[in-house]
């Protein structure tokens, strides 16, 4: 039923909780997991410095700590976490010993559209993702990625909180 699970991460602690959830589910079904990170270009606050290929260890520890306490990251930590999202995901997968896992980075300025598009071309059976935690109205007005994905995805969507 779940041969291929697409996990969308953005570097936030909640998105790594989504990854944990997907790995738990995937272990039960023996499924392949594809971790997708959509990088938004021209967003200077999220600019990825390619010299920073190696992830700083302290940010990894911080993300792990804050995922359990559900604390918010500071702005500085946020941009570091965003840039190193895939690195953190790789570490997490290695720690969990998950073998059938792939990592993919796509650059696009419309994350929701990209996630849905990737889900359909990769023939994913489910999309797992976190949510920004915006309220009902602000999500509608600002445009929440998870909300858009839920309404236009070709497959079941699992929103982790």
């Amino acid at each position: 039923m779940l041969n291929r699970i697409l996990v969308s991460i953005d570097g936030s602690p909640l998105s790594f909780q989504a990854l944990d959830f997907a790995m738990g589910l995937g272990a039960a079904c023996g499924s392949e997991i594809i971790v997708l990170h959509v990088a938004v270009p021209f967003d200077l606050s999220k600019l990825h410095s390619y010299e920073m290929e190696k992830l700083e260890d302290d940010i990894y520890e911080k993300i792990k700590k804050k995922a359990t306490s559900k604390e918010e990251l500071t702005e500085d930590e946020k941009s570091k976490a965003e840039a190193g999202a895939l690195e953190v995901a790789k570490k997490k997968a290695a720690e969990a010993g998950y073998k059938t896992i792939l990592f993919k980075e796509v650059i696009d300025n419309e994350p929701a559209k990209t996630i849905v598009h990737q889900a359909s071309i990769l023939k994913a059976d489910a999309i797992v993702m976190g949510t920004s935690g915006l309220g009902l109205m602000s999500a509608a007005l600002l445009g929440s990625v998870s909300g858009k994905v839920v309404s236009s995805a070709p497959c079941p969507v699992i929103i982790v909180r």
């Binding site: 909300g147 839920v150 497959c155 079941p156 699992i158 929103i159 909180r161």
Partner: peptide, 13 residues
């Protein structure tokens, strides 16, 4: 539910 729930929500099309 997606907005308010504190646990994972699976939305089926």
């Amino acid at each position: 539910l997606v907005q308010d729930a504190h646990i994972p929500v699976i939305v089926i099309k």
